[in-house]
């Protein structure tokens, strides 16, 4: 289990992380969300030892993360970093060896991963000759090639086409199935909603919301009741008290009601005037929860 415990970090008097605390359990995919500058990248850099925390600690399986345990981490930084003039194979072997994998085994794994993720490159092609998508895949392989015990990925999906997104998502799910704690940051909230077991929303260096997507939904403002109705005469809703027309498409009128009393009245009117398509409270998407949390 990867644990952030009361991690503080300031840059020149500006507090970037404020007692940041959360866990990522084995086999769990944790989505790390927050507006730009919320502290996501700083938190990840601290976990990887690229930066040091002012106070607090990052632990792996109960022990403070040190140089040894970090070598078992897989890390994909927000700003991609690879050697432009080296072939993908050579640099993957280099990164694997820095994580303690013997040269021959590193070469075998690199070739296997390149094939698995369908990286298109000639054997002598330098990385700079590859498309950006393929370069991104190589960056992901660099994080995975040493079979990491923890995966920390900063914006792994940015700039990928839908096919590459699916390939990367599958790799993360596979890692989680193997018991690896996976934490990734992303602004693509529909992906976070689709992939993550739990989500943390960061604001001003503090975790302002944390839990499964369902837990977050339940905790969020349930929103106003909504009613969709068909086969009603034109301008039927004008006579209703406390109702606002949200949409009118293909004969379906969708209303937002300002109170439960107005909702009950509108429902009764709809049942007598036409056919009710749906009635209930609007379930907020993660994007709505996010907007509310960071507002």
């Amino acid at each position: 289990m990867l644990t952030f415990d009361a991690v503080d970090k300031s840059f020149g008097g500006r507090r970037v992380l404020d007692a940041l605390t959360f866990d990522v359990r084995p086999g769990e995919i944790f989505g790390f969300c927050g507006a730009n500058g919320a502290g996501k990248t700083t938190a990840m850099r601290i976990a990887l030892g690229v930066l040091e925390a002012d106070s607090g600690s990052v632990r792996f399986n109960g022990a403070d993360v040190d140089a040894h345990s970090r070598r078992r981490f897989g890390y994909m930084p927000e700003e991609r970093g690879l050697y432009a003039k080296m072939t993908p194979l050579d640099q993957l072997v280099h990164f694997a060896r820095l994580s303690g994998i013997p040269r021959r085994e590193a070469a075998r794994r690199a070739a296997e991963w390149l094939e698995r993720l369908g990286v298109v490159a000639g054997p002598r092609d330098a990385l700079e000759k590859l498309s950006l998508g393929n370069q991104q895949k190589v960056q992901l392989i660099a994080a995975l090639i040493h079979d990491p015990a923890v995966l920390v990925l900063d914006e792994p999906f940015s700039g990928l086409d839908p096919v590459a997104v699916d390939a990367m998502a599958e790799v993360l799910l596979q890692s989680a199935r193997e018991g690896v704690p996976v934490v990734f940051s992303s602004h693509q909230l529909e992906l976070v909603e689709r992939l993550c077991d739990r989500v943390g929303i960061l604001r001003g260096g503090r975790l302002v919301a944390e839990g499964t997507v369902d837990e977050l939904r339940r905790a969020a403002d349930p929103g106003r009741p909504r009613l969709s109705v068909t086969d009603v005469p034109p301008r039927w809703a004008d006579a209703l008290q406390g109702a606002r027309v949200l949409a009118e498409e293909d004969g379906v009128v969708t209303l937002e009601l300002e109170s439960d009393r107005a909702a009950q009245a509108a429902l009764a009117a709809a049942q007598s005037a036409g056919r009710v398509e749906s009635f209930g409270r609007h379930e907020p998407a993660l994007a709505d929860i996010f907007r509310e949390a960071v507002a």
Binding site: G49, V50, R70, P77, E79, G81, F95, L98
Partner: peptide, 16 residues
């Protein structure tokens, strides 16, 4: 080059 291309961040996650 390692600094400007941000490779250093990947490297510093593995070595000091």
């Amino acid at each position: 080059e390692e600094k400007s291309s941000r490779i250093v961040e990947v490297l510093l996650a593995k070595v000091r």
